[in-house]
Simulated assay, not measured.
Amino acid sequence: MSSITQLIAYEEGWRSKPYYCSEGYPTIGFGFRVGPQSAPLNQYQFTLPRVAGEAWLQAYLEMLKDSMEGYSDIQAALAQCNEARASVLYSMAYQMGVSGLTQFKKALHAIQRNHWLDAKNEMLDSRWARQTPNRAQRHADQIQSGLWFSGYSDTV
Results as ranks from 00 to 15, higher is better:
A93K: 01
S2P: 10
K120G: 01
P40F: 02
L64T: 01
E54A: 01
G146V: 05
Q45W: 02
H109L: 14
E11V: 08
L78S: 07
A119W: 03
N82V: 08
E69I: 07
E62V: 04
N134R: 15
Q131Y: 06
W128C: 04
Q103A: 15
S2T: 15
W56N: 02
C81R: 10
W14Q: 02
C81E: 07
P36L: 08
A86K: 04
S150G: 11
Q37P: 02
Q58K: 15
S72Y: 03
A129M: 10
A86C: 08
E12M: 06
W148R: 09
N121M: 15
Q45M: 11
D154P: 00
M96C: 09
A93D: 00
R85G: 09
G31S: 05
Q95D: 04
S16V: 05
Y71L: 08
M92G: 02
A39W: 05
Q37F: 04
K106P: 01
W14F: 14
F30L: 07
S67V: 05
I74T: 04
H139A: 12
S16I: 06
M1A: 11
E62Q: 13
A52H: 12
R113N: 13
Y44V: 03
G29W: 00
A107W: 01
L108V: 11
Q131V: 10
S153M: 11
T132Y: 05
S2L: 13
R130H: 09
G13P: 04
H139P: 00
L147K: 14
I143E: 06
A79L: 14
H115D: 12
Q142N: 06
A107L: 13
Q137R: 15
A79K: 15
Q43I: 02
S22H: 11
Q80I: 04
F104M: 12
R113S: 12
V156K: 12
G24V: 11
Y10M: 03
N114Q: 15
D125C: 07
A77Q: 07
V98P: 00
G146P: 14
V156A: 12
G31P: 02
V51A: 15
P133S: 06
M1V: 11
V88T: 10
A129W: 04
